[in-house]
Every structure is written in structure tokens, then in C-alpha cells.
């Protein structure tokens, strides 16, 4: 017996009518789950705490203003600013690292945020120790160095190596990584624009569309040779989808125009079909490559009499 889905006529995602057209490209396959290829954001609690640990320095700096100690204030508020900057760099670095981990083909970040965060934090501690807490300068430098070392050890270094680029032409895979980065940005823009529509059903459809787009990305990442054929998809279609969504969101949030909504839904349907078609075609090409490979090898075995 199949489990029955919970929900009534007023539930946010009403049960599909039996036999109604589905958003799966019409081939009977179930629609992609919305969270496919998306990861939950990892939260590193210690990294979050780096935003709060420098707070006493802020209070101390404000206290120095009351005391009239200009150098002390400079050390404490300067140290506080540097430590907050370091905390922000660290959180950006962790985000970049997550994105790097989630992808099969990735380039190292252009700016090593976590390493710079460690160094900036060390300078902040040294400044706060020597000017603020009144320690001798060498002691401040030692504390700063230990803080940098602990930061780098505790929060790690940035990913420094190219990933998934072994055995493939480096130039080619670099192009793939760049193209996917651009396309991911377009998908993020698409999702942002869909948030402004203010209609849960449509937002869910756009999210499914984004999941389908990411499926295509994974296919391209797996086989960089697909890039030339997927390039149009990665730029033109996604950009069009994003711009159309932004315009529709503006319009629909103003006047709830049902005509525009119908047209937009038709566009989403077309895009869904085209995205899944695209993915299938790219995979089909891999399949025919494999067939050719097998054919050639078997023929060769035949010719050399290794096979009965």
C-alpha cells in the first residue's frame, strides 16, 4: 500500500490533479526534489564566536575615550576593527570553502580569505596588547603570532589546489570552472528575483528549475567536452530566465496581473522542458561516445582473433 501524502485543498502545495501535466518534461519521471544538489549551510560555531570575542576591546576602547588616553583608544578600537574584519574574512572564506567542496571542478579562490583573516587577527591582537593593554611591544608581537598560529590551525587554510582537473586539459577545465561559476551566479540571481514574486507555488517552481539547471552543471562538470554545446544554456537561457523573472516579479507584486502570470507559467514550463531535454542530450552524447568506444574495442578484439 502506498503512503498517502498529507494535505488538504488549502495546503500550500496542493495535490496534483491526476493526469495533469507535470513539471518534469512530460516523460512521467517525478519532478526533481527542490533540495537536490543543494547543501545545508554548515555553521561553525567557533567561527561565529570570532565576531563576539573582540567585544571587550570595544568597551575598553570606549573607556579609553573617557580616560583621555588617545594611544590606548587607538590600540583598542583599531584592534577591535581588525578582529571584526578578520571574523568577516573568515566567514567569507568558510563560505567559499563550502562552495569549493560542493563542486566537482573548482578553482582555488583568487583571494585566500582564511589565511588573510589569520594574519589580520594576529595584527589586531598585537595592536591591542601593545597599545591597549600596555604590554611591551615584543610581548604584543608574541601574542599576535600565537593568535595567528592558533587561527590558522583552528580554522584551517583556504583550499589552494585546483580540484577535479586531473587528467583533463587544464585550459579546458579552467574554462568549465569559470563558465559554471558564472552560471551559478545567474541561478542565484534567478532565485533572488523569484523571492520577490511573493507566490509560494511559483517560487517552488523556480526552485525546481534551479535544481534542474544545477543538474546540467553537474553533467558539464563531469565531461568538460560538453561545454561548447552547453554554453548557450549556461548563459543565454539562464540570463533570459533571470531577467524575465525579475520583470515578472516587479509587475506581479504591483498588480497581480493574471495574464502575465499565465504567460510566465508557460515560460517556466518551456524552460523546464528545455532544461531536462538539454541534460538528456548531454548524457546521450556521453552514451554514444561509450558506444563508439566499445564498438571500436570489440572490433579490434575480433580482428586480432582474441574473441571467438
Amino acid at each position: 500500500m502506498a503512503a498517502e501524502r498529507f494535505g488538504g485543498p488549502y495546503s500550500p502545495d496542493p495535490r496534483p490533479e491526476p493526469g495533469a501535466g507535470q513539471a518534469d518534461g512530460g516523460d512521467g519521471a517525478p519532478p526533481l526534489p527542490r533540495f537536490r544538489n543543494r547543501r545545508a549551510t554548515r555553521v561553525n560555531i567557533l567561527a561565529r564566536l570570532t565576531f563576539f570575542a573582540p567585544l571587550p576591546l570595544l568597551l575598553a576602547g570606549l573607556g579609553e575615550i573617557g580616560q583621555g588616553d588617545a594611544m590606548g583608544m587607538l590600540g583598542e578600537l583599531g584592534g577591535f576593527a581588525l578582529l571584526i574584519l578578520a571574523a568577516w574574512l573568515l566567514s567569507e572564506g568558510l563560505k567559499a570553502e563550502d562552495a569549493y567542496d560542493a563542486r566537482k571542478v573548482a578553482r582555488p579562490p583568487a583571494f585566500p580569505r582564511k589565511i588573510v583573516a589569520g594574519v589580520v587577527a594576529g595584527i589586531g591582537v598585537a595592536l591591542a596588547c601593545s597599545l591597549g593593554a600596555g604590554l611591551p611591544i615584543p610581548a604584543g608581537i608574541v601574542f599576535g603570532a600565537v593568535a595567528t598560529a592558533a587561527h590558522l590551525l583552528g580554522f584551517g587554510l583556504d583550499p589552494m589546489r585546483k580540484k577535479g582537473l586531473e587528467g583533463v586539459d587544464e585550459f579546458q577545465s579552467d574554462r568549465v570552472a569559470r563558465a559554471i561559476e558564472g552560471a551559478e551566479a545567474l541561478v542565484a540571481g534567478l532565485l533572488d528575483a523569484s523571492q520577490r514574486i511573493g507566490d509560494r507555488g511559483l517560487e517552488a517552481r523556480v526552485e525546481r528549475l534551479a535544481a534542474q539547471a544545477r543538474e546540467v552543471f553537474r553533467v558539464v562538470e563531469d565531461d568538460p567536452r560538453d561545454l561548447p554545446r552547453a554554453r548557450k544554456f549556461l548563459t543565454v537561457y539562464l540570463m533570459g530566465a533571470r531577467d524575465a523573472t525579475a520583470k515578472f516579479a516587479d509587475l506581479y507584486s504591483r498588480n497581480r496581473d493574471t495574464g502575465a502570470r499565465t504567460e510566465y507559467e508557460a515560460l517556466l514550463g518551456d524552460l523546464e522542458t528545455s532544461f531536462s531535454q538539454h541534460r538528456k542530450e548531454l548524457l546521450l552524447d556521453d552514451r554514444s561516445d561509450l558506444d563508439v568506444e566499445i564498438e571500436v574495442l570489440r572490433e579490434r578484439l575480433n580482428r586480432e582473433g582474441l574473441k571467438a
Partner: peptide
């Protein structure tokens, strides 16, 4: 000791240095 534990301790040491620096600067200012 395992890697994650070591990393956690190092991160904790970093936070402690920052926090205590702030406290001692606060104390010195009083």
C-alpha cells in the same frame, strides 16, 4: 589526538587570546 579535536582546541585558544586581550585592555584602562 584526532585532527578535529586539535582544530577545536586551537580555535578555542584563538578565541581565548582575543577575549582575554580585550579584558586585560579593559582592566588596564580602569
Amino acid at each position: 589526538m584526532s585532527g578535529p579535536a586539535l582544530k577545536g582546541i586551537a580555535a578555542f585558544v584563538f578565541l581565548a587570546i582575543v577575549f582575554l586581550t580585550g579584558l586585560s585592555a579593559f582592566g588596564a584602562g580602569l
